[in-house]
């Protein structure tokens, strides 16, 4: 029984870190631009396809595919922001919601046309491999995703704290008007931030390709998952995304073990409701002023 609990908790932690990674892009974009990217899941799925095709067609390792997906999605996100999103930054939230739902539907439709409706399961060796630590088995694909999630957070935190442009981003996140007044290049900052958020979604998508079959219909699931994660962790907080992911991952794992596995989703949404009631800003979200 102890071994079962050990394996389940480890699995929950790793899955939680994967969830955290999926949510990271969403929280970055909200933290700086203050818009809620409902197309996040569709971007994760784009990364998932990059990971799938890189592995299935050219045998490229997942981690290399993740870098390519990140670069590709950065360009995509940057272009999307400069061509469409920037016109909606100061518009009311409900208009932004509709815009991003539209973008999500367009992206999913394009994926459906381009890749078809069939799920494309990964044929990477990572899909079958584990590392054994005594009786505890660590899923290699999840472990890799978890490590990359931690590295991404550290890299992003370092970039924001120590680089000049990172300081610009933080300043723009703190006070957009103030930034404009002191001459910060706000449009450029927003475009790059949106690109970074999209890149995070792309990297996450490619890294989870050994775990999830690539198919367009996953977009809604990923968007919902990212939302639950960042709302529990706190919108706009990197650490919150990880802690939120861990909380959801562990809740699902423990719920599956203690109750019925089919109740996993119900319990994670139940947790979301409790957090919304008890601590509306999530574990690490900033206080509303």
């Amino acid at each position: 029984m102890l071994i079962l609990w050990g394996n389940v908790l480890v699995s929950g932690i790793l899955m939680g870190l994967v969830y955290g990674m999926i949510a990271l892009g969403l929280t970055i974009i909200f933290g700086v631009i203050r818009i809620v990217n409902f197309a996040h899941g569709a971007m994760v799925v784009l990364g998932l396809y990059v990971g799938y095709f890189a592995g299935a067609w050219w045998g490229i390792p997942t981690i290399v595919a993740a870098v390519s997906a990140g670069a590709l999605l950065f360009v995509f996100g940057h272009s999307l922001e400069t061509s469409v999103v920037k016109r909606f930054v100061t518009r009311p939230h409900h208009i932004q919601f509709i815009l991003f739902i539209g973008i999500s539907l367009v992206l999913s439709g394009a994926q459906l046309i381009a890749f078809g409706p069939d799920p494309r399961p990964s044929i990477s060796h990572l899909s079958f491999e584990t590392i054994a630590l005594g009786p505890i088995r660590l899923d290699l694909a999840r472990l890799q995703a978890a490590i990359v999630a931690a590295v991404m957070i550290l890299a992003l935190a370092g970039f924001l704290k120590y680089s000049t442009f990172g300081r610009f981003i933080r300043a723009a996140a703190d006070n957009r008007l103030g930034g404009l007044m002191v001459g910060l290049p706000i449009p450029k900052i927003y475009a790059i931030t949106f690109g970074i958020g999209a890149a995070c979604a792309g990297v996450a998508g490619a890294l989870i390709s050994p775990l999830f079959d690539a198919q367009p219909f996953l977009a809604v699931d990923f968007t919902l998952l990212a939302f639950v994660t960042v709302i529990v962790g706190g919108l706009g907080s990197f650490v919150g995304a990880l802690v939120g992911g861990l909380t959801i991952g562990l809740t699902e794992a423990v719920a599956a073990l203690l109750f019925a596995p089919s109740l996993k989703s119900a319990l994670s949404y139940g947790l979301l409701m409790i957090v919304l009631i008890a601590r509306p800003r999530g574990f690490f979200g900033a206080k509303e002023t």
Partner: peptide, 10 residues
């Protein structure tokens, strides 16, 4: 279900 690790562990 996105993940069946717990189910198979059980």
């Amino acid at each position: 279900a996105r993940d069946l690790s717990v189910e198979v562990a059980k």
